[in-house]
Design a protein around this nucleic acid. Structure first.
Lengths: 145, 145
DNA sequence: CTCCAATGATTCGTAGTACGAATCAAAATA
DNA sequence: TATTTTGATTCGTACTACGAATCATTGGAG
């Protein structure tokens, strides 16, 4: 299963299709919650962790300067908060406020609902297998975040 | 496998994690190609089909007015083209130009490369199983788009 | 220890993105 | 035929995204 493998190409394609479907749902549901897709992504990433600006920007695939403004606006709305990072005097950590947690919870609910038509095409055994395979792709993270 | 099923929650979570990972990669690689994530999404959706503005907007989860400008700018850059829709005199179809096809091809290459670290954690059998399960979630579409 | 380059973050200017309201033409319905 | 609905666009406004410039802290090199 490597990049040059034609079998992997089909798999990457299928992952892409799922991703596109999910992005459509996320974009739509973010709009309902008065969030941009990017803001929703920020909330989702910060779900269970506190992160440095630079790491968050890398994870989002955005420039640091973009993230600065993004976090400032989210902070102004009370969704996230900043705190001086540990160790490095320059670093800044970001984390969800209670309001942010609640907004995320609403987003997660809507996302589950939006994905239901897809997920419900699988029976229990298939669902369990899919979950196991996806978990194998993220070995470093616990399964139930 | 329905929304209220706790087993489905874990699965939706895993799908969400994969989606977030893929979005980070897509955002980053879109930037490299001088495209926004949304523009890349447009190209990906139009990969093998011609679509009406309204349908494309729905698929993206965006307002029609947003899509108008988006397509206009993409058109100006030569990535897509408009044509009067069939049947309805008001409708407008959008489709990829050759330039758009090439930009998409570059994006697909980069995406495969970005997903490789994840995909390569699966052996061949697992990859085949995952592909089969994902294909089952999109029954109406051919497997090798 | 003292410079000095590298790093983490921010601000600024500019172009692109996204929304809703308003508008217009074609289509569907009464 | 008159009316409403639908597909698409334009406009104004706020947000998003980038790169360049800036500032402070850090970590080495000498």
């Amino acid at each position: 299963m490597t990049t040059t493998d034609p079998r992997a190409d089909a798999l990457v394609d299928a992952i892409g299709r799922l991703t596109f479907e999910a992005m459509g749902a996320l974009t739509h549901l973010a709009g309902e919650l008065d969030l941009s897709l990017t803001q929703l992504r920020v909330l989702g990433i910060l779900r269970d962790r506190r992160m440095r600006m630079a790491d968050l920007a890398d994870y989002l695939g955005l420039e640091r300067s973009t993230l600065s403004g993004l976090v400032s606006r989210a902070e102004k709305r009370g969704l996230v908060a900043r705190a001086p990072g540990t160790g490095d005097g320059r670093a800044v950590d970001v984390y969800l406020t209670d309001v942010g947690q609640q907004a995320l919870a609403a987003g997660l609910r809507d996302f589950a609902q939006a994905m239901d038509p897809l997920v419900s095409r699988l029976d229990e055994g298939e669902g369990a297998t899919l979950l196991r395979l996806l978990a194998r792709m993220f070995p470093d993270e616990s399964l139930d975040r």
